[in-house]
Structures are given as C-alpha cells and as structure tokens.
Design a protein around this nucleic acid. Structure first.
Length: 507
RNA sequence: UCCUUCUUAGCUCAGCUGGUUAGAGCACAUGACUGUUAAUCAUGGGGUCCCUGGUUCGAGCCCAGGAGAGGGAGCCA
C-alpha cells in the first residue's frame, strides 16, 4: 500500500508519486494550501494549488486539519527552503481519516497536559527524534555485546522473594501466593554466567519507589551483563568500552535526530577520552570541596552556579516586563502582540525552572558541605560531582555497609566493597551500578543475615558458590537514564514511549 | 513519608491592598489575501476561577480542610 517514503524523496526528484501520512501542519492563503506531511520517516511540505487541482479538490484540501491522515499525489520538486530539501506539488489528494480539534497546538504546553496526551504527544517531531535515538541505543547495545561473544539470556520477571527488602517491590498474586515483580535480574544473571560465561539480560524492571524526581520511573528497562572470570577492573574496562561504543553509534547515525532536539554534541564527543576512576574516598573529598578537579572546586562552582541562576532570573524578569509593556502600547499590530505573547510564555516557563533551581541549589550546597563520610552518595551529591567533569566518571570501592549484600569485600581493605557506580556528566548522575560479586560463601551468609533476608530464598544462590565458584562481575545500566543523558532531556519521562511512574498509569 | 511550588477559557498565562458585567495571546469558526515556514487583517463563540466549608455588605483574591500536579529529600538504574 505504502510505496514511497518521505526519507527517500531525493531519489524520486522530478517524478510523480503518492505519499501517505498525517498533516503535522497546515497554512492557507488564497488559492494555496500548504500541508506539512509526516509519514514516520520524515516531514515534507506539500503544496496544493487551486489552479492545479481544481475547485472540488481544493475545497477538500481546505478541510485538511492538524493530524488528519491523508494521501497526497504529486510531483517531487527540489526546494532548498524546505527541511527535507524537497516539496510535493500536489495534483490529487484524499482525506483518509479526519481529525477534529487536535488537542496539541503549535505552542508551549504544560507537562501534565502533555503526559495526559502522551499517545498524541509522541507524534511531535521532538518525541519522534527521541524515540529514534532510543531505538539506536537499544540496537547498539545488542551489537556491542553480541560482537563480544555475550549471549542474551533473560531473567524471570516474577520473583518469589524480596531480594533487597519489600518496600520498593510491586506485589502480585501468583496462583494464590504473593509474588513480586522483578527489581533486578542480577542474581539470575550470575547463575547464567556460570553456564555461558558472558551473558546479558535486557528487560523491564519494576520499582515501587514513591519518588517524584526527574530520574525515577516505576517501570524501566535495564541491561545487566554478567561475566565469569572478571574482576572489578575488568568490569570497569568493559563498562567504559560499552558506553563509548553506544555513544559513538548514536553520534554516527543520529545526527539529524540530535539536531532536531538541539543536543550539543561537542560534550558527547568527549566520550573518546578515558573515564576518570575515583575511589569513594576521593569522590567524598571532591564533593566536600576538599579536593579540586581540573582547578574547579565543587562548593565554589555550585555557589557560582547559584549566582548565575539568580542573575538570569533578573534578566528574564526584566525581559518579561519589557515585553508586557510593549504589548500594551497602543496601535501595536495584532501579529506582533501574538509573537510577544508567545515569547513571554516561553520566558515564564524558563523563569519557573530557574526559580526551582534557586530553591534547590542551596539544599544541595548544604548537603555537599555536610556530607558524612561513610554514607551513600545522594542524588544531589552526584549532581555536584558530575558537574565538574565532561565525561562519565566511575566511583568504586564503597563502604560495604551502604552497598548490596552480594558485592565482594575488597581483599586489600575489608572496609570496602568492590562496587562501581558510573555517573553521567552534565549533572545527570548514576546511570550504571555494578561490581565484582562476593564468592566466599561464609561472607555471603553473614551479609544475608545482616540484611535480615530470608536465608531459604538464597539457597540456590549460595549453590553457585558451592559448586565451582569463580571470580565474576557485572553491572546494570538503566536504559532510560542513558537515553535521557544522551538526549539531554529534562526528565526521564520523555525517554520511554509510555512512562509508568508514581501517580501515572494512563495512557 | 517529609519539604517546597502551583491549580483562572480547549492550551499557555494576567488579574494590583477583597469592590460593578473575570481579561490577553494561541487554538477554533466565518470572511478577506496566490509561496506560507509558530509574526497578515476583521468579526465571533467559548468560564462551576480545582472541591467543601468559613470570615465579610461583598471572595478568583483572606482562613480551614481535602483533591490533583510540578520539583526536591530519602531510595535507586
């Protein structure tokens, strides 16, 4: 049915063909209708002239509304002014499905409204670009692991026991018994690595955290590789290769998509540089401002940022006032009023974001200054430290008390566990958590008791130590957090087609 | 669970120390305009000011309670 795609128009210059798609925009003037058609592969302006199509079809063209589906037949003509470089000069058309009062207008909208209309919001150019980048990321993840001899092997989604406490698990009914939706496939990954050597899981993960932040989802996709005969340093090498490979793939093949969302790719190109590897001790000193990074101090740079935010607030407020006064001057043209009003709307949006930051930064400063050695890094601490770097950083050797029970105790210093977190730059924070696994059965049993976990549920896991245990390591990558960082999105909710988060189950 | 900001037209927002009939822009409808790219012009329709109760001669505005949303903390990928 659909023979020609907008992305291929260049090879049909001068020919007549039929495009099928949706009207993403329409402009009208006497005797002319301009329809911007999108077909999922691109956008193309189609011109419908009354002289060419005649009275009856022209009347039909005027009835095309935003997001109506249409079939347009015409001549492919080169036109430098158009975004795809081509336009269609229509000589026949048909409305396939009408669209009355399409709710998403060509203007700024609030998040709540857009989330309620997520099924339609996905049609916008920006969301189209994000979803294509997400797809590329997923594809290149498989490509990377498959090319290195990893086998994809998935963990179950129903689990019979709470592996890391029940408070953040979704409970379901499994033939009359309680079952929980998986919050990690990691333990199963270890079992699978003992049979195939190097494996990775790629599936959904569920966490019932009542978190309302820009980094949290209740349902997200996680990639969890697990490798036999790997120590924490092999693991860090792999993480670095892996992230570099994915980012490079996106830079190489998503140029158009990155341009659409306005992503500054210079920062992403730094991915070729080695990732700094900091021990927990170093990370803490940096956060507290006791150690500088590249001549930058965390506390000072955060204070400067606060000042910059406050200055910007002043500027934005002044501009809003100026434009509001302008609108009120008598005799101003209607079009100019509309334009200024649109600018004011944008500025107000920016202002409320800035004011949010103005409230948050002092809290973060406080938390950085008063950071207590031995604690886990909080969201704000991650933000503080990653702002000082332009590549992802790896923090390893954590106090064992704050990390999961299955992490290997550092043989050189038993205070530490061999866990590693990867923090994305530009303030994005944790995207990967992983480490080398404990192989000593006795230490594991102690830890399971310490965490007050039900021993019988871990008998199978302990078997992995009883029958030919080997050094092994792995990590978990949150897909949505990676997409969010690569696209520099303000919130993870835009990185997945239909986000599930606290307070959001529809659409 | 805690802290914080918010809720006025389909959408984005004004609405001054409480005072007649609540406004703008966009969108929509009708008409005018033969090349527009969120900027043409005119006219028009459109409101349970989140809900409940209170104070007051009078509440969109003040007070109390509730609901919903945004951001942050905790927790995490």
């Amino acid at each position: 049915m659909q023979k020609y795609l907008i992305k291929d128009l260049a090879s049909y210059e001068g020919q007549e063909l039929t495009l099928l798609g949706w009207a993403s925009n329409k402009r009208e003037s006497k005797g002319l209708v301009f329809v911007v058609l999108r077909d999922g592969t691109g956008w193309c302006q189609c011109v419908i002239s009354q002289d060419t199509v005649g009275e009856a079809l022209f009347e039909e063209a005027r009835k095309i509304t935003l997001e109506a589906s249409v079939s347009l037949t015409g001549l492919v003509v080169k036109d430098e002014r158009q975004m795809g470089g081509f336009e269609l000069q229509v000589n026949a058309l048909e409305i396939i499905g009408e669209s009355l009062d399409y709710p998403i207008a060509k203007k700024e909208h609030g998040v709540d409204f857009l989330m309620d209309k997520r099924h339609l919001w996905l049609r916008s150019q920006r969301q189209w670009a994000i979803m294509r980048i997400r797809n590329k990321i997923i594809f290149s993840i498989h490509e990377f692991f498959q090319s290195k001899g990893f086998v994809q092997m998935d963990a179950p989604l129903f689990t019979g026991n709470a592996c890391e406490g029940t408070s953040n698990l979704f409970e379901t009914d499994f033939y009359g018994d309680p079952a929980y939706l998986s919050q990690s496939g990691q333990l199963y990954g270890e079992a699978m690595a003992m049979t195939l050597g190097k494996i990775y899981t790629f599936g959904p993960t569920f966490r019932a955290e009542k978190s309302k932040t820009r980094r949290h989802l209740s349902e997200f996709w996680m990639i969890e590789p697990e490798m036999a005969f790997y120590d924490i340093f092999d693991n860090m090498d792999l993480i670095e290769d892996f992230l570099r490979s994915v980012v490079t793939a996106v830079l190489d093949s998503c140029e158009k998509e990155l341009a659409i969302i306005g992503r500054d790719t210079e920062i992403l190109k730094n991915i070729i540089k080695p990732f700094p590897r900091l021990t927990y001790d170093e990370a803490v000193r940096i956060i507290k401002g006791e150690q500088d990074v590249n001549g930058q101090n965390s506390i000072v740079s955060l204070e400067n940022e606060l000042k910059a935010v406050q200055e910007r607030i002043g500027l934005v407020q002044a501009e809003i006032a100026e434009r509001e006064a302008k609108i009120k001057t008598p005799g101003m043209k209607k079009g100019e009023i509309g334009f200024n009003q649109a600018q004011i709307d944008k500025l107000k949006q920016e202002l409320s974001d800035l004011q949010e930051q103005e409230r948050n930064i002092p809290q973060w400063l406080n938390s950085a200054r008063n950071f207590e050695y031995g604690n886990d890094l909080g969201g704000s601490d991650e933000t503080v430290i990653t702002r000082l770097f332009d590549v992802p950083i790896m923090v390893y050797n954590w106090p064992h008390e704050v990390k999961a029970f299955y992490l290997k105790r550092d043989p050189e210093n038993s205070k530490f566990a061999r866990g590693v977190d990867v923090l994305a730059p530009e303030g994005y924070g944790e995207i990967v958590g992983g480490g080398e696994r404990e192989t000593n059965e006795q230490l594991l049993i102690e830890k399971i008791n310490e965490h007050q976990l039900p021993m019988e549920a871990f008998e199978w896991y302990l078997d992995l130590r009883r029958y030919g245990t080997v050094p092994h390591a792995g990590f978990g990558l949150g897909l949505e957090r990676l997409v969010t960082w690569l696209c520099k999105l303000p919130h993870v909710r835009e990185s997945i087609p239909f986000p599930r988060m606290y307070g959001r189950l529809l659409p």
